[in-house]
């Protein structure tokens, strides 16, 4: 897919729970095709200690307004600067679309989209694409506690949302892997994006039950174009770049140990 570098107009910047925010960036032209699971490399200006672009998952795409949404967590000065972008005033320079994509289900399959925290980011657009393909997605979302729960009305429009919190302050008490819906054995596909321990737990359980599972990895990277070879993932085919061979990987290709 042809990549582009473009200054998009910031048309929205909504603060969600705690350190999370959603940036909406609108193209003056027509957005290229964007696949679920793909990401952007955002240039951060006016942040002296930020040198590299920041890889951000594409949260949603609105083709009628040519707008991309990015769900971001403040993790340092770079993302903090992005959180202060002013709609209608600021622009954001994006290198996109980058990376591969999730595999869409076939008709009639049962699919569960699991994630937590910022890992929810790619699941909305994935859910939208799955829904458009005629399959109803279900979501299993995990959070530390009630105050960390991120807005998920858009998810509810696409399918059933099952919530888990570690302290039980809302939804099921425990991790997403403790949700009864996750324990059901007739899933045809499980997708996961979230903190590494969550993805490893989801992967281990799916492997055990022989359920097809894809995870989206979030490795440190410099270029996002398969050049710097910094974001490597050990796989059965050797070290691969999470930016170009991923970020989405089939768990059977990863050298993840179930004991980890």
């Amino acid at each position: 897919m042809k990549k582009r570098i473009e200054d998009l107009v910031v048309t929205g910047n909504r603060r969600l729970a705690e350190s999370f925010f959603v940036i909406e960036a609108t193209s003056a032209g027509v957005l290229p095709e964007i696949l679920p699971g793909q990401f952007v490399q955002a240039l951060v200006t006016e942040s002296p200690s930020t040198f590299l672009r920041r890889p951000l998952s594409i949260h949603d795409v609105d083709r009628t307004s040519n707008t991309i949404s990015l769900l971001v967590q403040i993790a340092g000065p770079g993302t903090e600067r992005l959180s202060r972008l002013v709609p209608g005033v600021d622009k954001i320079n994006l290198l996109f679309p980058l990376g591969n994509s999730f595999t869409l289900p076939s008709k009639g399959q049962r699919v569960l989209l699991t994630g937590g925290g910022c890992g929810m980011a790619p699941l909305l657009y994935l859910g939208r694409k799955i829904s458009e393909s005629g399959v109803e997605p279900q979501f299993a979302l995990g959070f530390r506690n009630r105050s960390r729960i991120l807005e998920h009305n858009e998810f509810r429009k696409l399918g059933t949302v099952h919530l888990a919190t570690e302290d039980g302050s809302e939804g099921h008490k425990g991790f997403v892997t403790d949700l009864p819906v996750f324990r059901e054995n007739d899933w045809d596909r499980v997708y996961c994006c979230g903190p590494e321990p969550m993805m490893k737990a989801v992967a281990a359980s799916c492997r055990e039950r022989n359920i097809a599972c894809e995870v989206s990895l979030e490795n440190l990277m410099a270029c996002g174009m398969g050049i710097c070879l910094c974001c490597i993932v050990p796989t059965n085919a050797g070290n691969l770049c999470s930016c170009t061979d991923g970020p989405v990987f089939n768990i059977n290709d990863l050298k993840w140990q179930t004991s980890e």
């Binding site: 590299l52 440190l220 990277m221 410099a222 070879l229 910094c230 974001c231 490597i232 993932v233 050797g238």
Partner: peptide
Amino acid sequence: EGNAYPRMAE
């Protein structure tokens, strides 16, 4: 194969 991850620091 190169070195193990992490290989980069800003």
